[in-house]
């Protein structure tokens, strides 16, 4: 058979289809595995009992499988870290894209992105050894391993994501928009918050949500600095145990295919579903508010 252009074309198309399918296949197999290992726990505890149960004693007899304190901890840590990282990340992005000189930007942007390259265990160690004793001594609290410390460390981790993606969005706002605004007599500041920010809002929102979904799934940092108490937090200085920390701490020694093992996988399902919702929302926003050219604003 002589290779004709048509045949080559078809072969190449199949090769690319194959490579693209591999990641989809792997993902669906992992999800399938996750659900197969997680669902059996619901024969022991009801879905509302699992999600809203206040006690997590998986190894006691009789055991209690209520993940509400873990869920509340994950939500609290993520929200608090978002409250720190969103202003930091977005304002840094605005500065870099609109105000900073080209030379400063060329140095500062890679440095911010390098923050993302710090392994999470290093950030966790920093939080445990430096930040925790500092918090203890400064605020006279019982323990520095708490919700606030974890949120702060997670904020360090999501700032690069938020900053880098929003900076791209802000930078790609068409220059005519800015010029028009300035030509109408608006100041630089007015142009920034009346024109540039609204025009890049979809990009910024995507950045924020991706940053938060990184924070909710992060394991090592919360395992090391969140404290690990299975309590619903009542103050930002309470020790907490977010879902990933529980899975990481207990999975290694939970007997294979025991109720405890299945319950940990079920927590994994809850985590997966929440990050998936975050990503779907990010996708939806970026699609709905897509800025196509300068005409649609």
């Amino acid at each position: 058979m002589k290779p004709t252009p048509h045949r080559i074309e078809r072969t190449i198309r199949f090769v690319f289809l194959g490579t693209a399918s591999i990641s989809i296949l792997v993902l669906s197999l992992i999800v399938l595995f996750l659900f197969m290992e997680g669902i059996p726990i619901f024969s022991k505890v009801s879905v509302p009992g699992f999600i809203f149960g206040r006690r997590w004693y998986p190894a006691s007899s009789p055991p209690d499988f209520g993940i509400f304190p873990l869920l509340a901890a994950s939500v609290a840590v993520t929200l608090l870290s978002a409250a720190i990282s969103i202003p930091l990340g977005v304002m840094t992005a605005l500065y870099l894209a609109e105000i900073a000189s080209v030379r400063f930007r060329a140095i500062a942007k890679p440095v911010v992105e390098l923050l993302a390259a710090l392994p999470s265990v290093v950030i966790g160690f920093f939080g445990m050894v430096i930040v925790a004793p500092f918090l203890q001594d400064t605020f006279h609290i019982a323990t520095g391993l708490n919700l606030f410390n974890a949120a702060l460390m997670l904020a360090f981790m999501s700032v690069p994501t938020i900053c880098s993606i929003s900076e791209d969005a802000i930078f790609s706002v068409p220059v005519e928009l800015k010029e028009a605004s300035l030509a109408l007599g608006a100041t630089h500041w007015e142009t920034l918050y009346r024109v540039v920010v609204p025009a890049s809002l979809s990009g910024i929102s995507t950045a924020v949500i991706l940053g938060m979904s990184r924070a909710i799934g992060e394991t090592m940092v919360v395992l090391m600095v969140a404290g690990g108490a299975g309590l619903i937090p009542t103050s930002i200085f309470d020790p907490v145990r977010p879902m990933p920390a529980s899975i990481a701490a207990e999975m290694a020694e939970a007997p294979f295919r025991s109720d405890h093992y299945h319950a940990l996988f079920a927590i994994g399902m809850v985590l997966f579903i929440s990050t998936m919702i975050f990503n779907l929302v990010a996708d939806y926003i970026s699609r709905k508010h897509k800025q196509a050219g300068s005409a649609t604003l």
């Binding site: 006691s60 391993l145 404290g227 108490a229 299975g230 701490a249």
Partner: peptide, 14 residues
């Protein structure tokens, strides 16, 4: 039971 406010650490080193 150990009360839920106890800080659980995952290793002796921790």
């Amino acid at each position: 039971r150990v009360f839920p406010g106890a800080l659980l650490q995952a290793s002796s080193g921790a």
